[in-house]
Simulated assay, not measured.
Amino acid sequence: MQLEINGATAYAYTGGKAFDPSLPTFVFIHGAQNDHSVWALQSRYMAHHGYSVLAVDLPGHGRSSGPALATVEAMADWLLELMKAADVQRAILAGHSMGSLIALEASRRAPEPVIGLALVGSTYPMKVSDALLETSRTDEAAAIDMVNIWSHSSIAQKPSCPGPGFSVMGGARRLMQRMSARNPDGLFHTDFAACNSYAGGEAAAAAVRCPVLFVFGNKDMMTPPRSTKLLTGAIAHGKITIVDAGHQMMAEAPDAVLDALAGFAATIK
């Protein structure tokens, strides 16, 4: 599905079904240097089980034209404009990593249509080490390799992978490389800097009144569960689900993430 937002093309995958704004909508928001495809299983399932789906490509990522936006606040505003253009009335915002901050900020800015928040691989503050931030600026290829290693709990294929011979780490690395090729203007550094500089998370969390699901990976080295106490403490009514995976849990533990999202959505009226 293509929309025009602020004079630029915006793309959202609808899960293989025509978008119907009369249904509650799952809005899936990817993380740094990724696109909508990281939500492949979860978005398609929801589209075929009673929800409309918008799995977005953020500006400068995937099929959405750039430039990439430099702050979480700007990305949240863009997301709300996309939801308005699609006539979304009731939305569950599901964000991974950087996408979780965007979902959180969007819910603060426009709480009315947000009936649920699913924050996957999230933390606040989402600080990036100086070394990684600098590497993302000066040597994006090296930064991709660093993050790819730290985002996975193992090089071994899991039983729920799509098929024999599929490499979770290889697929994630190739996706980030493709994002670099499509947008060579320092995309990774822009995304990382946005996460690192976002200062509104505590206020946004305190404003949340809708149901919230946290999904954390027990082997996550990028946003480890021990770093999440400020965020989970500020949203005390949030439900926490732990899956056996690293940061890229939608690929490493796709069924567990899907079960968590589907179970959460079923509780929202």
Rank of each mutant, 00 (worst) to 15 (best):
H49P: 02
P59E: 12
I115N: 06
F26W: 13
F26P: 08
R209N: 06
G201Y: 09
A8G: 00
D20S: 03
A86M: 03
L213R: 01
C161Y: 14
M126I: 05
D185Y: 13
A141I: 15
A68V: 06
M249Q: 11
S180K: 15
A141C: 10
M83V: 05
H30R: 05
K219M: 12
G99P: 12
A203D: 14
V114I: 14
T14D: 07
A47Y: 10
T267I: 13
A70K: 15
L3E: 06
L261K: 03
G200F: 09
V257L: 14
S160N: 14
A131D: 12
E112T: 09
G62A: 02
L175P: 01
M176E: 04
P59Q: 12
N34F: 15
G200N: 08
L119Q: 00
V56W: 10
V215P: 03
V212A: 00
A106C: 08
L117Q: 00
A8H: 06
D20Y: 03
S65H: 08
M169H: 08
G238W: 03
A253V: 01
K127W: 12
D220R: 06
R174P: 03
S197C: 10
Q157L: 06
Y51P: 07
G50C: 09
M169N: 08
A94H: 02
S37V: 11
G263C: 03
G201Q: 07
V147M: 14
W78P: 04
K269L: 11
D244N: 04
S180E: 14
K219R: 14
L93V: 07
D185N: 15
A199Q: 13
F26N: 12
G186T: 05
T71F: 09
V215G: 02
Y124S: 10
G60P: 06
F214T: 01
H189R: 08
S52E: 03
A181Q: 04
D191S: 05
V120R: 11
L117C: 00
A156R: 11
R209L: 03
S64N: 01
H48F: 07
E73G: 08
P211H: 04
P159V: 01
M169Q: 13
L213H: 02
C195S: 11
A266R: 06
D255E: 09
A91F: 04
A47W: 12
S100L: 11
R174I: 08
V208R: 00
C161H: 14
L41N: 05
S227A: 15
S64M: 06
T138I: 13
L80K: 05
K84D: 07
V257P: 04
A55G: 11
Y45Q: 02
G16C: 05
E134C: 00
S136I: 04
E81D: 13
M75A: 04
P24E: 02
A141E: 14
I5M: 13
H49F: 05
F19M: 02
L3V: 11
A205V: 05
F188W: 14
P211F: 01
P211L: 05
A8I: 03
T241N: 00
A172W: 13
P21E: 00
